[in-house]
Each structure stands twice: as C-alpha cells, then as structure tokens.
Design a protein around this nucleic acid. Structure first.
Lengths: 340, 340
DNA sequence: ACATTGATGTCAAAACATTTCAAGTGCTAC
DNA sequence: GTAGCACTTGAAATGTTTTGACATCAATGT
C-alpha cells in the first residue's frame, strides 16, 4: 500500500494540513525543524504525491490534450503529424506541461470526443485536422474551454493555426508554369481533410488563372498516403497524353510519384517535374532532393501549444494570422522538354 | 460552473449513489423510468463525468505513460521514435487506453522521474531507451509498478522489448564483406544509448571475427543525427585511405552518409556501399533505396504497450524474447571495385 | 395462512488524496 | 492590553464509486 500524506502526518504526529504546507512550501509557513522532520518522514515512507488528487482539488492538471479524430485513416503515421508533435512536445517541456494523446476509439462520435475533452484531465486541448466538427467547437466555446485548432479550416474568432495553402499552391504552380510546363497533373490529399480539399481547389484555380487546362484524369487522389499515390501515379504516367509535371499535395506523395516515374524508366526532373508540399525533414533525404512548398509544421505545433497554455492561464492571446508558406526549389523540377 | 453528479441528484430529487448507478449501468440496478429521468437530466445539465475523480476512487486511470528521459538530445525528432509511437498509439486505441507523454523537464533526475511515474495518473509506463536508470527500475520493481522497457539493455527478469542488435550488425558486416569490402567504416549512434553502444561493439567484434581491420578514424560518432553524421561522413570520405563501405547505426545517418558522398562526387553504390539500421519507412523513400537492417519498431511499440496493459490488469505476461532483425538488401550496396 | 428467501431498488456515508479556509494558540512588541 | 505575527489544526471541499443497511414486493416452502 503506497503512502499518503496521512501516513506522514501520523508518523510525525502532526496534522495533514501541516504536512501539505511543508511539502509545498506554503501557502502557510511551517517551523523549520518540523518541516525537516516531515520531509525526512516522506522520504522514509517512499512518498510520492498523487497528482490526481491534487488536480482534482486545484482544478488544474498541467496536462494538455492532443486529439485527432480520425479512425478511418491512420493519421498518426504521417511525417507531418510527427513534426507537429515534436513542436508540441518541445513546447510542453518548456512550459512545464505534459501531453495527453487521446487514442481511445469507442468514443469518436461528437459526444464521445467531448466527454474525453471535458473530463477534467486536461487544461486545454489541441485539435488536429478536424473534419466537420463545428458542434464540438460550439460546445467548447459555450463552456469557455481552452482549445486551438491545428491545420483546419480557419475561422475569425477561434484560435486556428493554419497555413496559407492557397498561396503555397499558387507558388508551386507558378514555378512549374514558369519552367514552361503546361501539362500539369495533381495528386491530391485526402479530400475530407480541410488541407487536402483546399489545396485541390487552389490547384485548379491556379491553373485557370494561368489559362492552363484542368484535365480530369491528371487529377487523382493519393489520400496523403504513399502506396495509394504510387499506384495512382503509375497509372497517370502511363497515359498516352501524360502530364510533364505533377504537383503532389504532400511530400510523401511526391516521393511516391518520383518512385513511380523511376519504375517506368522516367527520370526526374528530366522527363517529369515534381513538386511536393510540407517540406517535412525526413522524406527529403535521398535523391533527387525535392522541390516543395514548406510549411513550418514544428513551429505551428509549438504556437498552438503555447496559445492553449496561455488561454488556460487566463491570459489574452492575439488571434493567430495565417502562417505563410515558402517555395523551396531543389532538384525535382526542371524546364520542360516539350516544344512550347 | 460545470455540473456534477450532485447537481443531477438534486435536480431529479434522488441520491448521488442512484445517479452513479444509473450513469454506469450498475453495479446495482435502477428502475427504468427513473434511470431515464436521470439520463435526461444529465443531458440537460451538459454533464460530463470527471475522469479525474473517477480514477482517484477506482485507483485506475486507463492511461499509459510514455517516458523518455533525454533532455540533452532531441529524441522526439527521430523517425524511429515516431514509428514506435505509431505502434503504441494504435495499440492504445485497441486497448481503450490513452497515452500520456511525459515531457516535463525540470524533473529529470531520478527522483523527478519517479514522481512523474508514481503520481497515480497512469496505470503503467513504457520507458523508452533509458540511460543508466537501474535505480528507477528497482524502485518500480519494489512497488510492483507495471512497466516495460523499450529499446534498452535487456535483463532476464524485466519486460524488455529490444532487438538483437548484435546479430543485425553481423548480417550487415557479412553482407559487405561478402561483396568484397575490406575497408569498412562505421558511423556510430549515440554511445550513451544502449543501442548505439551495442551496435558499435558488435561492429568491431564482427570485423575482428572476419579478420578485417578496425581502423580508428573510420569509426566516428554521428549521434543518431543527420547533421552530425553528414559532416563526419564528409571528413571520413576525404581521407586519403577512405573506406569503401560504411555501416551507419541508423537510416538517417545512412542517408547523411549518402548525401555526403554525393556532395563529394562519389556515387553510391558504385564508389561507396552504405548500410543503415532501422528500416524506418520514411527515410527510405528516395534514391538510392537503402540496404538496411530492419527492426520492427512499430510492432515493438505495440508489444510493449500490450504487455504493460496486461501487467496492469494483473494478468501474467510471458517474458519477451529478443526480437530478431532482418537484412533488407536494396540498392545502396554493391561489390567493391578495389582489387581483392 | 405465514414465515422464509431473494431479488429489486434506494440511500447515507465512507473512502480516495489532496488543498485551503477559518479559527485558534501562543508569543512578542508597541 | 491589544495588535500583529508565526505556527498549527480541524474541517470543508474537490467529484466520484461502492459498501452496508434498509425497505418493498413477489415467489417459495411448510
């Protein structure tokens, strides 16, 4: 049986309140030599404070939650979420918080999600890439529960840490167009995810702005996954009128495209230019180095966490602005060989 | 002020115990139409059970902790830890547990770690890649606290999920030797980590077994990180008597080595063979595909989690065996050009 | 007919481990 | 002689679960 504050009190012959004051250095003072006896007894008894009971009383747990509501799709596996988590966990460390990752699956309808969030275990929550969860946000708003949305649709009066997808995609398309490409394909992400959908829309708009053709069979969903994208790219690159450039909605899919090209004996960038999105560190090892649209994922995670912590502490936090992306030109793009 | 079970009791005009029974379907029965009134009241009041209070009473939280004690080194950033976490979090989902990642930094001495673990928030803990934490294990053993060690030194009477590093390294070295390489270098991992140290030792032993020279300046630490390894490899490959093959202690460092070779105009595998370790999915996108020693990290994470859950529930769990690695031959290795 | 058993349904109170408020005891100092 | 300080305590509070007790009512055995 593990020791509690009561056992210490009994052993030293003093009240529990005094023990609590001694252990926490306050809020009331306690006589120095008595304090020492209490500390010694605590060590003797192998005492560790029960964080649970403390949180219950203090109504504050120093834990921040991280929630992703996707069960159909193994989102934890993506390099993007990894970078985000690195940012969050480093920020947690600096802020003295721990991180609770909700993975429990039998409660993924809205009520379930809410009961996870509102169960008192966390002081605030980061909601990653939500799909249609307006109702949840409204409940949280109504109860004034601290939260931030990471990579979701932005909204004026919420704390949304998202990236300017539209501008990023425009840069990618412009880059390819400036290299002379007119036949540009697109491997889309998962369209039920906001980022996936938005990049797809932005892609089509960007082509139209430049008066380039939007060809249906050059736009296929890769679902943000390697395998799907690989086979989709394989098909696309075997079309009689295949594109000369492909924009993929993330780096993993861009790599899949390059690998598919390689399988078919096409070389990148000579025969095919490829642009990705994310600039996650890891998939960019290896040749050819990827031309991609960089979004500062780690920093986004960090910002979201810091915001939640501040809100939870009652401080006012400025509404975040849309985070800008940058085009990083490397080796996977080159001028088209086709006559212009 | 958020509603509690008490508020429901007051509203319905019934005792708190009855409310509790109604909400949890037991352990005592409650009259159907009364139960319905209670459920309605709960919904009306926007009630969500406080998990904290429940855990306190039940002495069980349904949360498993994940701890890595490295502050000096940004371990969260490695692809290997990502795969492990994917496995853990998927297993959590299946087991109905949540995952608490300890990141709090001002308690990284032993006492601090213990007070994190033993504070009642988690039912068990996975300790990732511990460095010299024998004392912690002893305390946990003494208190019968459920835990598993993931990728650390193995010990007969603990639950250690580790990989047969030695055999993995032997396969890598044999593969290179069989291709005719005699000048084999090594980029080591972080030697304060058990896996790093063990692979380094195994590497040297494997060379000696084959009567190959162990050359000091062909063995350098890359600390498991890309940047460090890149510059170390750059130096090594500019030596007048440079190695013709390099074994790197993980895939990221292998990629760094390949990139360094490329910077120097050396081609892999023609001028230099490279073998990695891990076979993490992501760094193996891109060319050339990496020859590497595969360790099933995701599965290891999953196994460790399942074990902790079982131990926490009082079931007996068989001691894990050392997990075997496999050599995956891809494109980064080739026969040496040197005369034999 | 009547006690016995056994569910079923409800409740008060204890327990979980802590923090903190209000109150009280000495004691020094003005 | 009381104001204030340093120290200590009992009790209330946090939000649950669960034990033991009690009541009600139907079915069973004699």
């Amino acid at each position: 049986m593990t020791a509690s504050i009561k056992d210490i009190a009994r052993k030293v012959g003093v009240s529990v309140s005094t023990v609590s004051y001694a252990l926490n250095n306050g809020p009331k003072p306690v006589a120095p030599q008595l304090k020492q006896r209490i500390l010694d007894a605590a060590k003797d008894l192998d005492y560790y404070p029960r964080h649970l009971a403390r949180s219950l009383k203090r109504k504050k747990s120093d834990v921040i939650g991280f929630i992703h509501s996707h069960m159909t799709f193994d989102i934890m596996r993506s390099p993007a979420i990894h970078e985000v988590i690195v940012g969050i966990s480093n920020a947690c460390q600096e802020q003295g918080k721990d991180l609770l990752i909700y993975t429990h699956s039998d409660r993924l309808e809205d009520q379930g999600l809410l009961s996870m969030i509102l169960d008192g275990r966390v002081d605030g929550v980061i909601i990653f890439a939500p799909e249609n969860q307006e109702e949840i946000f409204q409940t949280l708003d109504r109860r004034n529960f601290p939260y931030a949305i990471l990579l979701g649709e932005t909204s004026e009066d919420r704390f949304c840490y998202s990236v300017d997808n539209r501008h990023g995609v425009e840069m990618a398309v412009n880059h390819l167009a400036n290299l002379g490409h007119t036949k540009i394909g697109h491997i889309t992400g998962r369209l039920s995810l906001y980022d996936g959908l938005e990049r797809d829309r932005a892609f089509k708009d960007a082509l139209r702005d430049r008066n380039l053709p939007v060809v249906d069979h050059w736009v296929q969903s890769g679902n943000f996954e390697y395998q799907v994208s690989y086979s989709v790219a394989l098909d696309m690159l075997q079309l009689p009128d295949k594109p000369t450039a492909i924009f993929a909605s993330n780096d993993v899919m861009a790599r899949a495209t390059i690998d598919a090209a390689r399988t078919l004996g096409l070389s990148v960038p000579t025969d095919l230019s490829v642009v990705g999105f994310d600039d996650t560190e890891v998939p960019n090892l290896g040749a050819p180095a990827l031309t991609t649209v960089r979004q500062p994922l780690e920093n986004l995670g960090r910002k979201a966490l810091e915001a939640v912590v501040q809100i939870a502490e009652g401080n006012s936090v400025p509404r975040p602005e849309l985070i800008q992306t940058t085009l990083i030109v490397r080796e996977s793009t080159a001028p088209t060989k086709e006559p212009i």
